[in-house]
């Protein structure tokens, strides 16, 4: 079976002068299906961001492989990025572009068909409700407005696979719920979504399958129901503690 996202033995090792070799990600395997929200649940420093950065080709894996729609992250990074939307708290917007220009720039740079860009920009401006401030520079927008523009620029080129790395960090409750709603809608449109978080309630509410990642390794990966059954715990918080509390094998 062909998966839109396929990860096998993915490893990332950093060398730090004072701490020596650090295996930030240690031989992980997973795959994501079409129209699925796949959750990476882990504490800070578990290896979530490093994994997602390798998938988005920002970082090069030390070993193992990962492919997005059969484009290998090492051999064909541009092919990967063309089919990928990447959103994280760290991916900021250009402050001196307007919201509309931002969406247009990211649509064009991700090689969305040139003739359809204006139509796509109009659609996204409407869809994310940013028409009132579409021509205002990003630097003048509030955090909530910026988050909407960020979501719009992530999907500007209509990518089939979208990565959300802790997308609700720093947002208030209403904006966080709005972001979650958008992610659900994108899944319903058939997008494959990889979603990383350390907030248990978010994972419970959104994810079709959850991988519990700790110390750079995936300790288990299943649906919420499957994890409940395996651990005998109801709440994801308790499930997570049960896995992460015991040392990785």
């Amino acid at each position: 079976m062909s998966y839109p996202v396929l990860v096998r033995g993915l490893t990332k090792t950093f060398y730090d002068e004072s701490r020596g070799e650090i295996r930030a990600v240690d031989g992980i395997d997973f795959e994501c299906g079409e129209g699925e929200i796949f959750g990476l649940l882990g504490a800070n420093g578990a290896g979530k961001t490093t994994t997602l950065r390798m998938l988005s080709t920002i970082l090069t894996p030390t070993s193992g492989s990962a492919a997005i729609l059969n484009h290998d992250v090492v051999r064909d990074p541009e092919g990967v990025r063309k089919h990928l939307g990447f959103y994280s708290a760290g991916t900021a917007l250009y402050p001196r572009l307007t919201a509309r220009e931002t969406i247009e720039f990211f649509a064009r740079i991700n090689q969305y068909p040139s003739s359809r860009v204006p139509e796509r920009v109009r659609y996204l401006v409407d869809r994310f409700g940013i028409s009132k401030y579409a021509d205002v520079r990003v630097e003048k927008l509030s955090t909530g407005m910026k988050q909407k523009v960020s979501l719009a620029r992530t999907v500007a080129h209509d990518p089939p696979i979208i990565i959300f790395d802790e997308p609700t960090v720093g947002l208030d409750v209403l904006n966080a719920l709005e972001a979650q709603q958008t992610i659900k809608e994108l899944r319903d449109e058939g997008k494959t979504i990889i979603f990383s978080t350390h907030i248990m309630s978010e994972a419970e509410r959104l994810c079709d399958r959850i991988a519990i990642i700790h110390g750079g390794r995936i300790l288990d990966c299943d649906t919420l129901a499957g994890l409940r059954e395996k651990t005998g715990k109801h709440y994801l918080e308790d499930i997570f503690v049960q896995y992460a509390g015991r040392p990785a094998e």
């Binding site: 990025r81 063309k82 994280s88 991916t91 900021a92 990211f106 991700n110 090689q111 620029r153």
Partner: peptide, 12 residues
């Protein structure tokens, strides 16, 4: 500003 990471995740 964090825009480099945004740019590096595009098809460019």
């Amino acid at each position: 500003r964090g825009t480099l990471e945004t740019l590096l995740t595009t098809a460019a």
